[in-house]
């Protein structure tokens, strides 16, 4: 399969890229940073996911090379923990640009390419911070609430095109995204899960594997949270 993963230079994105490369798939990745190409079936494009021109160029290059895209994994995301009263507008704009505008742009351009083959899988990323309404994460959770609505509505709009759109909501996983969250806060959050522990990269890939397998062509518009929320 031809798979595109955003935010693939590190963390969950990097793990997913390696996971699908190890299965023999062709993976396109992107992130703000440049990385050394580490696999013959991997191509990396440095870009800002909210830069429409750059995103269109990336999809153009995939189309010219492979004429199709089977899977899009919208993993790129940023977070910022802060009390609402201490949150600058710039922070809000940055989070919405990366988490929502980026997800929207990639969904739109992917659907154009997938439409030609009348099949495709899109997986977006949300967070348990959204259903848990976590204090200090108003902007981050709001950006992911937008991603959830985008997921559910695009699932309906893209269904006639043979494209499914689903989302995964991971629990905290040890990545750069949560490295600045105090341990006590983290424990309070994890205690709200049915299974009170941090998640792993494998927990995430397990859900994505399910969403993108051929037998899941009837699964769309779903939000799956890890850990029992």
């Amino acid at each position: 399969m031809i798979i595109l993963i955003t935010g693939s230079s590190r963390g969950i994105g990097r793990y997913l890229a390696e996971h699908y490369l190890s299965q023999g798939h062709i993976v396109f990745g992107c992130s703000r940073s440049t990385i050394n190409n580490y696999h013959k079936n991997y191509s990396h494009t440095p870009l800002d996911v909210a830069d429409e021109k750059a995103v269109k160029k990336l999809f153009s290059s995939i189309r010219k090379k492979h004429h199709k895209l089977d899977v899009l994994i919208n993993n790129a995301g940023i977070a910022s923990m802060n009390h609402l009263l201490l949150t600058p507008v710039k922070t809000l704009e940055k989070i919405m640009q990366t988490n929502f505008t980026g997800t929207f742009l990639f969904c739109r351009e992917a659907a154009k390419l997938m439409k030609k083959a009348n099949t495709g899988r899109i997986v977006n990323f949300t967070t348990v911070a959204k259903p848990l309404n976590l204090e200090g994460e108003a902007i981050y959770a709001a950006s992911k609430a937008a991603v959830e609505s985008l997921t559910k509505i695009s699932a309906k709009e893209f269904a006639p095109l043979g494209i499914t759109v689903n989302a995964i909501g991971p629990t905290p996983i040890d990545t750069d995204l949560i490295k600045n969250v105090p341990e006590m806060k983290m424990q309070q959050l994890i205690a709200k899960q049915a299974i009170a522990k941090k998640g792993s990269f494998e927990d995430v890939s397990n859900v994505i594997d399910f969403y993108i397998k051929p037998q899941s062509q009837f699964i769309t518009g779903q939000i799956l949270y890890l850990g029992g929320i």
Binding site: E52, K53, K56, K57, S60, R63, K64, K112, K115, K116, P160
Partner: peptide, 24 residues
């Protein structure tokens, strides 16, 4: 509307292929 979208996508791709202009 969905047919218009289909035609627009075809045109955008052909312009990209033949004129090397990545337009929206």
């Amino acid at each position: 509307s969905i047919e218009l979208v289909t035609l627009i996508i075809e045109i955008e791709d052909n312009i990209d292929d033949q004129l090397d202009h990545c337009i929206s």
